[in-house]
Protein backbone atom coordinates (compact mmCIF):
# COMPACT_ATOMS: atom_id res chain seq x y z
CA UNK A 1 0.00 0.00 0.00
CA UNK A 2 1.41 3.42 -0.97
CA UNK A 3 1.97 6.11 1.67
CA UNK A 4 -0.53 8.99 2.01
CA UNK A 5 0.76 12.13 0.28
CA UNK A 6 2.22 14.84 2.49
CA UNK A 7 0.58 17.48 0.29
CA UNK A 8 -2.45 16.83 -1.87
CA UNK A 9 -4.02 19.54 -4.03
CA UNK A 10 -7.07 18.86 -6.17
CA UNK A 11 -8.71 21.29 -8.59
CA UNK A 12 -7.48 24.30 -6.60
CA UNK A 13 -8.87 27.62 -7.81
CA UNK A 14 -7.94 31.09 -6.63
CA UNK A 15 -9.07 34.37 -8.16
CA UNK A 16 -8.03 37.74 -6.77
CA UNK A 17 -10.18 40.84 -7.15
CA UNK A 18 -8.64 43.39 -9.50
CA UNK A 19 -7.84 46.74 -7.89
CA UNK A 20 -10.03 49.48 -9.34
CA UNK A 21 -9.73 53.24 -9.07
CA UNK A 22 -12.52 55.57 -7.87
CA UNK A 23 -13.58 56.35 -11.45
CA UNK A 24 -14.05 52.68 -12.28
CA UNK A 25 -15.89 52.06 -9.02
CA UNK A 26 -18.32 54.89 -9.74
CA UNK A 27 -18.86 53.89 -13.39
CA UNK A 28 -19.23 50.16 -12.72
CA UNK A 29 -19.99 49.73 -9.00
CA UNK A 30 -21.16 46.11 -9.30
CA UNK A 31 -18.47 44.94 -11.69
CA UNK A 32 -16.34 42.32 -9.93
CA UNK A 33 -13.35 41.70 -12.14
CA UNK A 34 -10.87 39.10 -11.01
CA UNK A 35 -7.54 37.75 -12.09
CA UNK A 36 -7.02 34.00 -11.94
CA UNK A 37 -3.98 32.89 -9.97
CA UNK A 38 -4.78 29.17 -9.73
CA UNK A 39 -7.00 27.54 -12.32
CA UNK A 40 -7.84 24.03 -11.15
CA UNK A 41 -4.38 23.05 -10.00
CA UNK A 42 -3.65 19.41 -9.11
CA UNK A 43 -0.55 18.34 -7.22
CA UNK A 44 0.65 15.49 -5.05
CA UNK A 45 3.84 15.43 -3.01
CA UNK A 46 5.00 12.24 -1.32
CA UNK A 47 6.39 12.29 2.21
CA UNK A 48 10.09 13.03 2.52
CA UNK A 49 10.36 14.32 -1.07
CA UNK A 50 11.99 17.57 -2.19
CA UNK A 51 9.51 19.04 -4.63
CA UNK A 52 10.69 22.03 -6.68
CA UNK A 53 8.01 24.23 -8.15
CA UNK A 54 9.21 26.21 -11.16
CA UNK A 55 7.35 28.87 -13.06
CA UNK A 56 7.46 32.42 -14.36
CA UNK A 57 6.48 35.41 -12.21
CA UNK A 58 2.75 35.45 -11.54
CA UNK A 59 2.36 31.75 -12.38
CA UNK A 60 0.73 30.97 -8.99
CA UNK A 61 3.65 29.55 -6.98
CA UNK A 62 3.36 31.95 -4.06
CA UNK A 63 -0.44 31.74 -4.05
CA UNK A 64 -0.23 27.95 -3.73
CA UNK A 65 2.25 28.25 -0.86
CA UNK A 66 0.15 30.89 0.91
CA UNK A 67 -2.95 28.71 0.62
CA UNK A 68 -1.05 25.78 2.15
CA UNK A 69 0.20 28.11 4.91
CA UNK A 70 -3.35 29.26 5.68
CA UNK A 71 -2.77 32.88 4.68
CA UNK A 72 -5.09 32.83 1.67
CA UNK A 73 -8.45 31.07 1.29
CA UNK A 74 -9.06 29.18 -1.96
CA UNK A 75 -12.17 29.81 -4.05
CA UNK A 76 -12.53 26.21 -5.18
CA UNK A 77 -11.00 22.75 -4.99
CA UNK A 78 -9.12 21.56 -1.93
CA UNK A 79 -5.64 21.53 -0.49
CA UNK A 80 -4.51 19.08 2.18
CA UNK A 81 -1.34 19.42 4.24
CA UNK A 82 -0.52 16.35 6.34
CA UNK A 83 -3.96 15.00 5.45
CA UNK A 84 -5.76 18.10 6.84
CA UNK A 85 -7.83 20.42 4.68
CA UNK A 86 -6.35 23.93 4.97
CA UNK A 87 -9.75 25.62 4.56
CA UNK A 88 -11.85 23.31 6.75
CA UNK A 89 -9.29 22.45 9.45
CA UNK A 90 -6.98 25.47 9.43
CA UNK A 91 -5.48 24.83 12.89
CA UNK A 92 -4.31 21.23 12.39
CA UNK A 93 -3.28 21.97 8.78
CA UNK A 94 -1.15 24.91 9.96
CA UNK A 95 0.52 22.70 12.54
CA UNK A 96 1.57 20.31 9.77
CA UNK A 97 3.65 22.92 7.94
CA UNK A 98 6.66 25.07 8.69
CA UNK A 99 6.99 28.16 6.55
CA UNK A 100 10.01 30.08 5.33
CA UNK A 101 8.03 32.40 3.13
CA UNK A 102 8.43 35.85 4.58
CA UNK A 103 11.32 38.03 3.53
CA UNK A 104 13.90 39.44 5.91
CA UNK A 105 11.39 42.05 7.05
CA UNK A 106 9.50 39.32 8.86
CA UNK A 107 11.90 39.47 11.83
CA UNK A 108 12.35 41.99 14.63
CA UNK A 109 15.47 43.86 13.64
CA UNK A 110 16.28 45.27 17.07
CA UNK A 111 16.25 41.83 18.70
CA UNK A 112 19.01 39.27 18.41
CA UNK A 113 18.68 36.11 16.34
CA UNK A 114 18.19 34.09 19.53
CA UNK A 115 15.56 36.49 20.90
CA UNK A 116 13.67 36.28 17.59
CA UNK A 117 13.65 32.48 17.76
CA UNK A 118 12.67 32.57 21.45
CA UNK A 119 9.67 34.74 20.62
CA UNK A 120 8.46 32.69 17.65
CA UNK A 121 9.31 29.48 19.51
CA UNK A 122 7.01 30.49 22.36
CA UNK A 123 4.18 30.86 19.84
CA UNK A 124 4.81 27.21 18.90
CA UNK A 125 4.81 26.19 22.57
CA UNK A 126 8.61 26.04 22.98
CA UNK A 127 9.31 27.39 26.45
CA UNK A 128 11.54 26.73 29.44
CA UNK A 129 14.72 24.62 29.38
CA UNK A 130 13.38 22.34 26.63
CA UNK A 131 12.59 25.37 24.47
CA UNK A 132 16.04 26.85 25.07
CA UNK A 133 17.69 23.54 24.14
CA UNK A 134 15.65 23.35 20.94
CA UNK A 135 16.58 26.91 19.98
CA UNK A 136 20.27 26.26 20.69
CA UNK A 137 20.04 23.17 18.50
CA UNK A 138 18.38 25.08 15.64
CA UNK A 139 20.92 27.91 15.85
CA UNK A 140 23.72 25.35 15.68
CA UNK A 141 22.03 23.54 12.80
CA UNK A 142 21.69 26.81 10.86
CA UNK A 143 25.32 27.68 11.56
CA UNK A 144 24.30 30.73 13.58
CA UNK A 145 25.43 29.69 17.05
CA UNK A 146 28.25 32.23 17.11
CA UNK A 147 26.01 35.05 15.81
CA UNK A 148 23.03 34.09 17.98
CA UNK A 149 23.36 37.05 20.31
CA UNK A 150 23.93 39.68 17.63
CA UNK A 151 21.09 41.92 16.60
CA UNK A 152 19.22 40.69 13.52
CA UNK A 153 19.91 44.05 11.86
CA UNK A 154 23.60 43.10 11.80
CA UNK A 155 23.03 39.80 9.98
CA UNK A 156 24.08 39.27 6.35
CA UNK A 157 21.38 38.27 3.82
CA UNK A 158 22.59 34.66 3.98
CA UNK A 159 22.38 34.60 7.79
CA UNK A 160 18.88 36.07 7.65
CA UNK A 161 17.82 33.33 5.25
CA UNK A 162 19.27 30.63 7.52
CA UNK A 163 17.44 32.15 10.51
CA UNK A 164 14.25 32.07 8.47
CA UNK A 165 14.77 28.35 7.84
CA UNK A 166 15.56 27.80 11.52
CA UNK A 167 12.29 29.53 12.40
CA UNK A 168 10.43 27.27 9.97
CA UNK A 169 11.81 24.29 11.92
CA UNK A 170 10.61 25.49 15.34
CA UNK A 171 7.45 23.41 15.19
CA UNK A 172 9.32 20.40 13.81
CA UNK A 173 6.53 20.11 11.23
CA UNK A 174 6.79 17.33 8.66
CA UNK A 175 6.29 19.70 5.71
CA UNK A 176 8.37 22.75 4.88
CA UNK A 177 7.20 25.47 2.53
CA UNK A 178 10.05 27.58 1.18
CA UNK A 179 9.62 30.41 -1.29
CA UNK A 180 12.74 31.31 -3.27
CA UNK A 181 15.14 30.61 -0.39
CA UNK A 182 18.28 31.49 -2.39
CA UNK A 183 17.02 34.77 -3.83
CA UNK A 184 19.56 37.59 -3.34
CA UNK A 185 22.20 35.25 -1.88
CA UNK A 186 25.80 35.12 -3.04
CA UNK A 187 26.85 31.78 -4.63
CA UNK A 188 28.43 30.37 -1.45
CA UNK A 189 25.47 31.30 0.75
CA UNK A 190 23.08 29.93 -1.89
CA UNK A 191 25.01 26.62 -1.94
CA UNK A 192 24.94 26.40 1.87
CA UNK A 193 21.18 27.00 1.87
CA UNK A 194 20.60 24.36 -0.81
CA UNK A 195 22.72 21.79 1.03
CA UNK A 196 20.90 22.56 4.25
CA UNK A 197 17.50 22.03 2.66
CA UNK A 198 18.40 18.99 0.59
CA UNK A 199 20.90 17.11 2.78
CA UNK A 200 20.03 18.11 6.32
CA UNK A 201 16.29 18.75 6.29
CA UNK A 202 15.10 16.34 3.62
CA UNK A 203 17.95 13.83 3.70
CA UNK A 204 18.68 13.40 7.40
CA UNK A 205 15.47 14.68 8.99
CA UNK A 206 12.99 13.30 6.46
CA UNK A 207 11.11 16.57 5.90
CA UNK A 208 8.91 17.04 2.86
CA UNK A 209 10.02 20.25 1.15
CA UNK A 210 7.86 22.27 -1.23
CA UNK A 211 10.40 24.65 -2.73
CA UNK A 212 9.37 27.45 -5.09
CA UNK A 213 12.23 28.70 -7.23
CA UNK A 214 13.11 30.39 -10.49
CA UNK A 215 16.47 28.66 -10.64
CA UNK A 216 16.33 25.67 -12.99
CA UNK A 217 19.83 24.52 -11.97
CA UNK A 218 18.81 24.53 -8.33
CA UNK A 219 15.77 22.40 -9.15
CA UNK A 220 17.84 19.99 -11.26
CA UNK A 221 20.43 19.60 -8.50
CA UNK A 222 18.21 19.42 -5.43
CA UNK A 223 14.76 18.12 -6.31
CA UNK A 224 13.35 14.62 -6.18
CA UNK A 225 10.37 15.87 -8.17
CA UNK A 226 9.86 18.92 -10.35
CA UNK A 227 6.70 20.65 -11.55
CA UNK A 228 6.34 23.62 -13.87
CA UNK A 229 3.39 25.88 -13.12
CA UNK A 230 2.10 28.48 -15.53
CA UNK A 231 -1.20 30.36 -15.68
CA UNK A 232 -2.33 28.61 -12.51
CA UNK A 233 -1.91 25.01 -13.63
CA UNK A 234 0.80 22.39 -13.59
CA UNK A 235 2.05 22.16 -17.17
CA UNK A 236 4.85 19.67 -16.70
CA UNK A 237 5.76 17.42 -13.81
CA UNK A 238 7.62 14.31 -12.84
CA UNK A 239 10.71 12.91 -11.15
CA UNK A 240 13.76 15.15 -11.45
CA UNK A 241 15.74 12.11 -12.52
CA UNK A 242 13.66 11.95 -15.68
CA UNK A 243 12.95 15.67 -16.37
CA UNK A 244 16.56 16.70 -15.80
CA UNK A 245 18.08 13.48 -17.17
CA UNK A 246 19.59 15.36 -20.10
CA UNK A 247 21.13 17.95 -17.77
CA UNK A 248 20.12 21.53 -17.00
CA UNK A 249 19.83 22.44 -20.67
CA UNK A 250 17.30 19.67 -21.24
CA UNK A 251 15.28 20.91 -18.26
CA UNK A 252 15.45 24.46 -19.61
CA UNK A 253 14.11 23.35 -23.01
CA UNK A 254 11.28 21.37 -21.39
CA UNK A 255 10.46 24.35 -19.12
CA UNK A 256 10.35 26.84 -21.99
CA UNK A 257 8.21 24.53 -24.08
CA UNK A 258 5.71 23.98 -21.23
CA UNK A 259 5.47 27.69 -20.38
CA UNK A 260 5.34 28.71 -24.03
CA UNK A 261 2.43 26.33 -24.71
CA UNK A 262 0.56 27.59 -21.64
CA UNK A 263 0.99 31.17 -22.81
CA UNK A 264 -0.02 30.33 -26.37
CA UNK A 265 3.43 31.00 -27.77
CA UNK A 266 4.86 28.72 -30.46
Amino acid sequence: MSQAPAVLVQGLVKRYPVFRGFRELIRHPFDRRTVTALDGLDLEIGPGRVFCLLGPNGAGKTTLIKILAGLVLPDGGRALAGGRDVAREPGPARSAVGCAIGDERSFYWRLTGRQNLEFFGALYGLRGPAGRRRIDELLRLAGLDEAADLRFSGYSTGMRQMLSLARALLADAAILLVDEPTRSLDPQAADRTREFLRDELAGRRGKTVLWATHDLGEAADCADDIAVISRGRIRLGGPAASLAAGGREALRRAYEKAVGEAEGRP
Binding site: R94, C99, G102, S106, F120, R167
Partner: peptide, 10 residues
Protein backbone atom coordinates in the same frame (compact mmCIF):
# COMPACT_ATOMS: atom_id res chain seq x y z
CA UNK B 1 6.46 42.74 7.42
CA UNK B 2 6.08 40.61 10.56
CA UNK B 3 2.32 40.01 10.23
CA UNK B 4 2.65 37.06 7.86
CA UNK B 5 5.22 35.35 10.12
CA UNK B 6 2.83 35.73 13.06
CA UNK B 7 -0.18 34.49 11.13
CA UNK B 8 1.44 31.20 10.07
CA UNK B 9 1.92 30.22 13.73
CA UNK B 10 -0.80 28.12 15.43
Amino acid sequence: GTLEALLVTP
